[in-house]
Design a protein around this nucleic acid. Structure first.
Ligand SMILES: [Mn+2]
Ligand SMILES: [Mn+2]
Ligand SMILES: [Zn+2]
Ligand SMILES: [Zn+2]
Lengths: 137, 137
DNA sequence: GCCTCATTTTGTAATATTTACAATCTGATA
DNA sequence: TATCAGATTGTAAATATTACAAAATGAGGC
């Protein structure tokens, strides 16, 4: 837990048990969880946890560049503490969101078509490797 | 209007005035409107229009590959009748969603990292050309 | 032209995620 | 230990989307 304490301190985020737990969960579960996923899991050990705290903490971590949101549909946002640039695939078979490590040409260009590009997000839809192996399709 | 009548017929979508109007609006306004935008605009000429019809029609057009949804945030979905592949930039200054015509290497590969890729969406955030010219930043 | 019936439209209600807010709590500091 | 700004909590509000059933529509057959 020392690791997460240090991360929060380095970013000037006041350390609280809730923030430590949320950060730890995100760092140890690279499954792109939703706010509900985080809340549901951490509430087991801390029954007084509030969903508002989860949302507040998520926002705080995003403001400090420690977290990105992944939005495949308006239904819900998913979150990822892996900041180094990568794309994402939503598997139509198993529903998982999977990291795609690719060399994306647009991440390097600061200007494209005259527009300034600050962030690049690649969202793919398809069928993941595991599901292809199992089911065919 | 003959054009949209033909499009619906070709795709086996039953022709109705509402569907014609929605299709026409999308084809003549490449501003990536929201469902609310479409509803609000078309209700002027057809006061009995229902928002459910807008959503139903959007879904139908998407099912037939005539429309794609653009999701930058969970707040709302935006829609685009331009199907030929292109990426999108959300300008943090003016809020517009702008088409980015680029050669994207991932659209050609059917398999990437062992996963099957069916759809590729490129979402950029930044500042558009017009806003750069005006405001600096 | 009229009937029929499947489909569509409409209006309302339900769902669910996210945000707003105020009271309470906490923890660092002096 | 007293203070107090900031964090947490619970509840309520906002809002986009979906579900549903009744009414309307429109193409095809007579
Ligand atoms: Mn990821
Ligand atoms: Mn577009
Ligand atoms: Zn899969
Ligand atoms: Zn702009």
């Amino acid at each position: 837990m020392e690791k997460y304490l240090q991360i929060l301190r380095e970013h000037g985020i006041k350390v609280t048990p809730q923030r430590l737990e949320i950060l730890r969960f995100l760092d140890t579960h690279h499954t792109h969880p939703s706010a509900e996923d985080i809340f549901h899991e951490l509430k087991k050990r801390n029954p007084s946890l509030s969903k508002t705290t989860v949302y507040n903490t998520i926002q705080s971590l995003m403001d400090h560049g420690l977290l990105i949101s992944i939005v495949f549909s308006t239904h819900e946002a998913r979150f990822d503490s892996v900041i180094n640039h990568h794309h994402h695939l939503l598997c139509s078979e198993c529903g998982k969101i999977i990291d795609i490590e690719v060399e994306c040409p647009f991440t390097k260009e600061k200007i494209t078509g005259g527009h300034r590009i600050d962030e690049v997000h690649g969202y793919f839809r398809g069928v993941c490797k595991d599901c292809l192996r199992k089911g065919g399709k």
